[in-house]
Protein backbone atom coordinates (compact mmCIF):
# COMPACT_ATOMS: atom_id res chain seq x y z
CA UNK A 1 0.00 0.00 0.00
CA UNK A 2 1.26 3.53 0.63
CA UNK A 3 3.43 1.75 3.17
CA UNK A 4 4.54 -1.52 1.59
CA UNK A 5 6.39 -4.38 3.29
CA UNK A 6 7.00 -2.52 6.54
CA UNK A 7 9.77 -4.26 8.49
CA UNK A 8 8.87 -4.85 12.14
CA UNK A 9 12.44 -5.85 13.02
CA UNK A 10 11.11 -9.10 14.49
CA UNK A 11 11.82 -12.53 13.08
CA UNK A 12 8.79 -14.32 14.44
CA UNK A 13 5.56 -13.71 16.25
CA UNK A 14 6.04 -14.33 19.97
CA UNK A 15 3.32 -15.77 22.17
CA UNK A 16 2.21 -14.28 25.49
CA UNK A 17 4.68 -16.36 27.54
CA UNK A 18 7.64 -14.87 25.67
CA UNK A 19 6.59 -11.28 26.31
CA UNK A 20 7.78 -9.18 29.24
CA UNK A 21 5.10 -8.11 31.75
CA UNK A 22 5.13 -4.62 30.23
CA UNK A 23 4.73 -6.00 26.72
CA UNK A 24 1.91 -8.25 27.86
CA UNK A 25 0.06 -5.32 29.46
CA UNK A 26 0.63 -3.32 26.28
CA UNK A 27 -0.76 -6.12 24.09
CA UNK A 28 -3.76 -6.50 26.42
CA UNK A 29 -4.60 -2.82 25.98
CA UNK A 30 -4.37 -3.16 22.21
CA UNK A 31 -6.56 -6.28 22.29
CA UNK A 32 -9.10 -4.25 24.28
CA UNK A 33 -9.02 -1.55 21.56
CA UNK A 34 -7.50 1.05 23.86
CA UNK A 35 -5.59 3.58 21.75
CA UNK A 36 -1.86 4.00 22.35
CA UNK A 37 -0.94 7.67 22.83
CA UNK A 38 2.47 9.33 22.40
CA UNK A 39 3.47 9.44 26.06
CA UNK A 40 2.34 5.88 26.83
CA UNK A 41 4.91 3.14 27.25
CA UNK A 42 5.33 1.10 24.06
CA UNK A 43 7.73 -1.63 22.93
CA UNK A 44 10.65 -0.22 20.97
CA UNK A 45 9.83 -2.48 18.00
CA UNK A 46 6.25 -1.11 17.91
CA UNK A 47 7.59 2.46 17.91
CA UNK A 48 10.14 1.74 15.19
CA UNK A 49 7.60 -0.09 13.02
CA UNK A 50 5.19 2.82 13.26
CA UNK A 51 7.90 5.34 12.41
CA UNK A 52 8.72 3.28 9.30
CA UNK A 53 5.11 2.80 8.30
CA UNK A 54 3.96 6.38 8.89
CA UNK A 55 6.95 7.90 7.20
CA UNK A 56 6.59 5.65 4.14
CA UNK A 57 2.99 6.74 4.04
CA UNK A 58 3.93 10.43 4.39
CA UNK A 59 6.63 10.22 1.72
CA UNK A 60 4.11 8.55 -0.62
CA UNK A 61 1.73 11.48 -0.25
CA UNK A 62 4.47 13.98 -1.02
CA UNK A 63 6.03 12.04 -3.92
CA UNK A 64 2.47 11.35 -5.15
CA UNK A 65 2.16 15.06 -5.93
CA UNK A 66 4.76 14.70 -8.70
CA UNK A 67 2.98 12.52 -11.30
CA UNK A 68 -0.07 14.78 -10.98
CA UNK A 69 1.95 17.99 -11.03
CA UNK A 70 2.99 16.92 -14.53
CA UNK A 71 -0.52 17.82 -15.77
CA UNK A 72 -1.25 21.11 -13.97
CA UNK A 73 -0.15 23.25 -16.91
CA UNK A 74 -1.79 20.93 -19.42
CA UNK A 75 -5.19 20.26 -17.81
CA UNK A 76 -7.88 20.45 -20.53
CA UNK A 77 -9.89 23.25 -18.88
CA UNK A 78 -9.63 25.84 -16.12
CA UNK A 79 -12.13 23.82 -14.07
CA UNK A 80 -10.06 20.63 -14.34
CA UNK A 81 -6.92 22.57 -13.52
CA UNK A 82 -8.44 24.12 -10.37
CA UNK A 83 -9.66 20.68 -9.24
CA UNK A 84 -6.28 19.10 -9.92
CA UNK A 85 -4.48 21.80 -7.94
CA UNK A 86 -6.89 21.31 -5.03
CA UNK A 87 -6.18 17.59 -5.10
CA UNK A 88 -2.42 18.09 -5.19
CA UNK A 89 -2.69 20.55 -2.30
CA UNK A 90 -4.60 17.87 -0.37
CA UNK A 91 -1.78 15.38 -0.98
CA UNK A 92 0.69 17.87 0.47
CA UNK A 93 -1.62 18.31 3.46
CA UNK A 94 -1.88 14.55 3.94
CA UNK A 95 1.90 14.31 3.96
CA UNK A 96 2.03 17.00 6.64
CA UNK A 97 -0.60 15.32 8.87
CA UNK A 98 1.40 12.11 8.64
CA UNK A 99 4.81 13.67 9.31
CA UNK A 100 3.26 15.24 12.44
CA UNK A 101 1.91 11.86 13.52
CA UNK A 102 5.39 10.34 13.06
CA UNK A 103 6.95 13.18 15.04
CA UNK A 104 4.88 12.24 18.10
CA UNK A 105 7.08 9.10 18.18
CA UNK A 106 10.19 11.16 18.86
CA UNK A 107 11.67 11.64 15.40
CA UNK A 108 12.18 14.92 13.54
CA UNK A 109 10.59 15.67 10.20
CA UNK A 110 13.87 16.88 8.73
CA UNK A 111 15.46 13.54 9.64
CA UNK A 112 12.62 11.63 7.99
CA UNK A 113 13.01 13.66 4.83
CA UNK A 114 16.78 13.12 4.91
CA UNK A 115 16.10 9.35 5.09
CA UNK A 116 13.90 9.56 2.00
CA UNK A 117 16.48 11.54 0.08
CA UNK A 118 19.24 9.12 1.07
CA UNK A 119 17.12 6.25 -0.28
CA UNK A 120 16.91 4.63 3.16
CA UNK A 121 13.12 4.70 3.19
CA UNK A 122 10.71 3.89 0.39
CA UNK A 123 7.52 5.44 -0.83
CA UNK A 124 4.75 3.54 -2.59
CA UNK A 125 5.83 1.72 -5.77
CA UNK A 126 2.87 3.22 -7.66
CA UNK A 127 4.39 6.70 -7.91
CA UNK A 128 7.27 5.42 -10.00
CA UNK A 129 5.03 5.13 -13.06
CA UNK A 130 4.68 8.01 -15.53
CA UNK A 131 1.50 9.97 -16.33
CA UNK A 132 1.53 9.84 -20.11
CA UNK A 133 -1.92 11.08 -21.11
CA UNK A 134 -4.64 13.15 -19.42
CA UNK A 135 -6.72 10.03 -18.69
CA UNK A 136 -3.88 8.92 -16.40
CA UNK A 137 -4.99 11.67 -14.00
CA UNK A 138 -8.45 10.10 -14.07
CA UNK A 139 -7.03 6.61 -13.59
CA UNK A 140 -4.88 7.72 -10.64
CA UNK A 141 -7.86 9.24 -8.83
CA UNK A 142 -10.11 6.30 -9.59
CA UNK A 143 -7.67 3.39 -9.08
CA UNK A 144 -4.75 4.63 -7.01
CA UNK A 145 -6.79 6.75 -4.62
CA UNK A 146 -9.45 4.04 -4.65
CA UNK A 147 -6.86 1.50 -3.53
CA UNK A 148 -5.54 3.97 -0.95
CA UNK A 149 -9.03 4.44 0.52
CA UNK A 150 -9.46 0.67 0.72
CA UNK A 151 -6.32 0.52 2.86
CA UNK A 152 -6.82 3.70 4.85
CA UNK A 153 -10.40 3.23 6.05
CA UNK A 154 -9.39 0.30 8.31
CA UNK A 155 -6.36 2.32 9.49
CA UNK A 156 -8.76 4.87 11.02
CA UNK A 157 -9.16 2.14 13.70
CA UNK A 158 -5.44 1.41 14.11
CA UNK A 159 -3.97 1.24 17.60
CA UNK A 160 -1.83 4.38 17.52
CA UNK A 161 -3.99 7.45 18.30
CA UNK A 162 -2.18 10.15 16.29
CA UNK A 163 -1.97 7.89 13.20
CA UNK A 164 -5.65 6.91 13.48
CA UNK A 165 -6.70 10.56 13.81
CA UNK A 166 -4.60 11.60 10.80
CA UNK A 167 -6.24 8.76 8.85
CA UNK A 168 -9.74 10.02 9.68
CA UNK A 169 -8.94 13.44 8.23
CA UNK A 170 -7.28 11.91 5.17
CA UNK A 171 -10.14 9.53 4.40
CA UNK A 172 -12.65 12.38 4.41
CA UNK A 173 -10.63 14.15 1.73
CA UNK A 174 -9.62 11.08 -0.25
CA UNK A 175 -13.17 10.42 -1.35
CA UNK A 176 -13.11 13.67 -3.37
CA UNK A 177 -9.94 12.42 -5.07
CA UNK A 178 -11.50 9.16 -6.16
CA UNK A 179 -14.67 10.77 -7.44
CA UNK A 180 -12.89 13.48 -9.40
CA UNK A 181 -10.83 10.70 -11.01
CA UNK A 182 -13.89 8.69 -11.96
CA UNK A 183 -15.49 11.88 -13.29
CA UNK A 184 -12.52 12.33 -15.64
CA UNK A 185 -12.81 8.67 -16.70
CA UNK A 186 -16.54 9.11 -17.47
CA UNK A 187 -15.83 12.19 -19.58
CA UNK A 188 -13.08 10.38 -21.49
CA UNK A 189 -14.91 7.06 -21.87
CA UNK A 190 -18.03 8.80 -23.17
CA UNK A 191 -16.05 11.17 -25.41
CA UNK A 192 -14.65 10.68 -28.90
CA UNK A 193 -13.18 7.34 -30.02
CA UNK A 194 -9.74 8.82 -29.48
CA UNK A 195 -10.58 9.92 -25.92
CA UNK A 196 -12.01 6.49 -25.12
CA UNK A 197 -8.82 4.90 -26.42
CA UNK A 198 -6.83 7.16 -24.07
CA UNK A 199 -9.01 6.06 -21.14
CA UNK A 200 -8.46 2.40 -22.08
CA UNK A 201 -4.72 2.98 -22.41
CA UNK A 202 -4.63 4.53 -18.94
CA UNK A 203 -6.55 1.61 -17.42
CA UNK A 204 -4.24 -0.86 -19.21
CA UNK A 205 -1.16 0.74 -17.69
CA UNK A 206 -2.48 1.47 -14.18
CA UNK A 207 -4.45 -1.69 -13.43
CA UNK A 208 -1.64 -4.05 -12.48
CA UNK A 209 0.50 -1.49 -10.62
CA UNK A 210 -2.65 -0.61 -8.62
CA UNK A 211 -3.09 -4.26 -7.59
CA UNK A 212 0.58 -4.35 -6.59
CA UNK A 213 0.02 -1.41 -4.26
CA UNK A 214 -1.45 -3.79 -1.68
CA UNK A 215 1.90 -5.54 -1.40
CA UNK A 216 2.91 -9.19 -1.89
CA UNK A 217 0.71 -12.10 -0.77
CA UNK A 218 1.18 -12.08 2.99
CA UNK A 219 0.72 -15.76 3.70
CA UNK A 220 4.27 -16.19 5.00
CA UNK A 221 5.03 -12.69 6.13
CA UNK A 222 6.03 -12.49 9.77
CA UNK A 223 5.92 -8.69 9.55
CA UNK A 224 2.28 -8.69 8.51
CA UNK A 225 1.37 -11.02 11.35
CA UNK A 226 3.16 -8.85 13.91
CA UNK A 227 1.67 -5.65 12.46
CA UNK A 228 -1.79 -7.19 12.65
CA UNK A 229 -1.28 -8.23 16.26
CA UNK A 230 -0.31 -4.65 17.08
CA UNK A 231 -3.28 -3.40 15.05
CA UNK A 232 -1.16 -1.13 12.89
CA UNK A 233 -2.41 -3.23 9.99
CA UNK A 234 -6.03 -4.36 10.14
CA UNK A 235 -6.61 -6.44 7.01
CA UNK A 236 -4.26 -8.65 4.99
CA UNK A 237 -2.84 -7.58 1.63
CA UNK A 238 -4.80 -10.26 -0.23
CA UNK A 239 -8.04 -9.43 1.52
CA UNK A 240 -7.75 -5.76 0.60
CA UNK A 241 -6.71 -6.59 -2.97
CA UNK A 242 -9.76 -8.85 -3.43
CA UNK A 243 -12.06 -6.14 -2.11
CA UNK A 244 -10.52 -3.66 -4.49
CA UNK A 245 -11.01 -5.93 -7.51
CA UNK A 246 -14.61 -6.72 -6.50
CA UNK A 247 -15.41 -3.04 -6.15
CA UNK A 248 -13.59 -1.78 -9.23
CA UNK A 249 -14.53 -4.30 -11.96
CA UNK A 250 -18.21 -3.18 -12.10
CA UNK A 251 -17.02 0.43 -12.27
CA UNK A 252 -14.85 -0.42 -15.30
CA UNK A 253 -17.88 -2.13 -16.85
CA UNK A 254 -19.91 1.04 -16.34
CA UNK A 255 -17.22 2.97 -18.18
CA UNK A 256 -17.30 0.43 -21.02
CA UNK A 257 -13.58 -0.23 -20.55
CA UNK A 258 -11.89 -3.63 -20.48
CA UNK A 259 -9.84 -4.66 -17.45
CA UNK A 260 -6.53 -5.93 -18.90
CA UNK A 261 -6.73 -9.41 -17.40
CA UNK A 262 -7.73 -12.42 -19.51
CA UNK A 263 -8.26 -14.52 -16.36
CA UNK A 264 -10.66 -12.11 -14.70
CA UNK A 265 -14.07 -13.67 -14.13
CA UNK A 266 -16.84 -13.73 -11.55
CA UNK A 267 -16.71 -16.75 -9.28
CA UNK A 268 -20.27 -17.30 -8.05
CA UNK A 269 -19.17 -19.96 -5.59
CA UNK A 270 -16.70 -17.66 -3.83
CA UNK A 271 -18.81 -14.57 -4.36
CA UNK A 272 -15.69 -12.79 -5.64
CA UNK A 273 -13.89 -12.11 -8.88
CA UNK A 274 -11.02 -14.45 -9.73
CA UNK A 275 -8.12 -12.61 -11.27
CA UNK A 276 -4.84 -13.44 -12.99
CA UNK A 277 -1.37 -13.82 -11.50
CA UNK A 278 0.48 -10.65 -10.62
CA UNK A 279 4.00 -10.16 -11.97
CA UNK A 280 5.82 -9.71 -8.66
CA UNK A 281 9.19 -9.42 -10.37
CA UNK A 282 8.01 -6.05 -11.69
CA UNK A 283 6.96 -4.96 -8.18
CA UNK A 284 10.31 -5.92 -6.67
CA UNK A 285 12.22 -4.23 -9.51
CA UNK A 286 10.28 -1.00 -8.90
CA UNK A 287 10.91 -1.21 -5.14
CA UNK A 288 14.61 -1.71 -5.79
CA UNK A 289 14.67 1.56 -7.70
CA UNK A 290 14.28 0.31 -11.25
CA UNK A 291 10.77 1.49 -12.10
CA UNK A 292 10.23 3.88 -15.00
CA UNK A 293 10.49 7.05 -12.86
CA UNK A 294 12.32 6.21 -9.58
CA UNK A 295 15.43 8.27 -10.27
CA UNK A 296 13.46 11.20 -11.65
CA UNK A 297 11.09 11.31 -8.65
CA UNK A 298 13.87 11.30 -6.08
CA UNK A 299 15.90 13.85 -8.02
CA UNK A 300 12.88 16.18 -8.14
CA UNK A 301 12.27 15.83 -4.39
CA UNK A 302 15.91 16.47 -3.50
CA UNK A 303 16.03 19.49 -5.80
CA UNK A 304 12.88 20.97 -4.24
CA UNK A 305 14.41 20.50 -0.78
CA UNK A 306 17.74 22.04 -1.74
CA UNK A 307 16.19 24.92 -3.67
CA UNK A 308 14.04 25.72 -0.63
CA UNK A 309 16.97 25.76 1.77
CA UNK A 310 17.54 29.55 1.62
CA UNK A 311 13.81 30.16 2.25
CA UNK A 312 13.82 28.00 5.37
CA UNK A 313 16.98 29.72 6.61
CA UNK A 314 15.67 33.20 5.87
CA UNK A 315 12.41 32.51 7.73
CA UNK A 316 14.34 31.39 10.82
CA UNK A 317 16.68 34.41 10.62
CA UNK A 318 13.68 36.73 10.35
CA UNK A 319 11.91 35.10 13.30
CA UNK A 320 15.10 35.25 15.41
CA UNK A 321 15.63 38.90 14.56
CA UNK A 322 12.08 39.83 15.51
CA UNK A 323 12.27 37.84 18.73
CA UNK A 324 15.54 39.59 19.66
CA UNK A 325 14.02 42.98 18.89
CA UNK A 326 10.96 42.22 21.02
CA UNK A 327 13.22 41.09 23.88
CA UNK A 328 15.19 44.36 23.73
CA UNK A 329 12.02 46.47 23.71
CA UNK A 330 10.65 44.63 26.75
Amino acid sequence: MYAQMVDTGLRKLRDAAELSPEERAFQARIDADVKVEPKDWMPEAYRRTLVRQIQQHAHSEIVGMLPEGNWVTRAPSLKRKAILMAKIQDEGGHGLYLYSAAETLGVSRDDLIADLHAGKVKYSSIFNYPTLNWADIGAIGWLVDGAAIMNQIPLCRCSYGPYARAMVRICKEESFHQRQGFDIMIAMAQGTAEQKAMAQDALDRWWWPSLMMFGPPDADSVHSAQSMQWKVKLLSNDELRQRFVDQTVPQAEYLGLAVPDADLKWNAERGHYDFGAIDWSEFHAVLKGNGPCNRDRLRTRVKAWEDGEWVREAAVAHADKRAARAARAA
Binding site: L96, Y97, S100, E103, S108, R109, D110, A114, R165, A166, R169, E309, R312, E313, A315, V316, H318, A319, R322, A323
Partner: peptide, 30 residues
Protein backbone atom coordinates in the same frame (compact mmCIF):
# COMPACT_ATOMS: atom_id res chain seq x y z
CA UNK B 1 21.65 21.48 7.68
CA UNK B 2 19.79 24.56 8.85
CA UNK B 3 17.78 24.75 12.06
CA UNK B 4 14.44 22.96 11.87
CA UNK B 5 11.36 25.17 12.22
CA UNK B 6 9.72 24.69 15.62
CA UNK B 7 6.54 22.64 16.05
CA UNK B 8 3.18 24.30 16.79
CA UNK B 9 -0.11 22.83 17.97
CA UNK B 10 -3.15 24.05 16.05
CA UNK B 11 -6.61 24.60 17.52
CA UNK B 12 -9.58 25.38 15.29
CA UNK B 13 -13.01 26.74 16.21
CA UNK B 14 -15.35 25.19 13.70
CA UNK B 15 -18.35 27.52 14.19
CA UNK B 16 -19.29 30.51 16.27
CA UNK B 17 -20.33 29.32 19.69
CA UNK B 18 -18.15 26.20 19.80
CA UNK B 19 -14.81 25.87 21.58
CA UNK B 20 -11.47 25.64 19.78
CA UNK B 21 -10.50 22.02 19.26
CA UNK B 22 -7.10 20.48 18.67
CA UNK B 23 -6.69 19.84 14.93
CA UNK B 24 -3.05 18.76 14.69
CA UNK B 25 0.39 20.25 14.53
CA UNK B 26 2.74 21.82 12.01
CA UNK B 27 6.13 23.47 11.60
CA UNK B 28 6.57 27.22 11.19
CA UNK B 29 9.34 29.73 11.81
CA UNK B 30 7.12 32.04 13.88
Amino acid sequence: MSKEWPLWEVFIRSQHGLAHKHAGSLHAAD
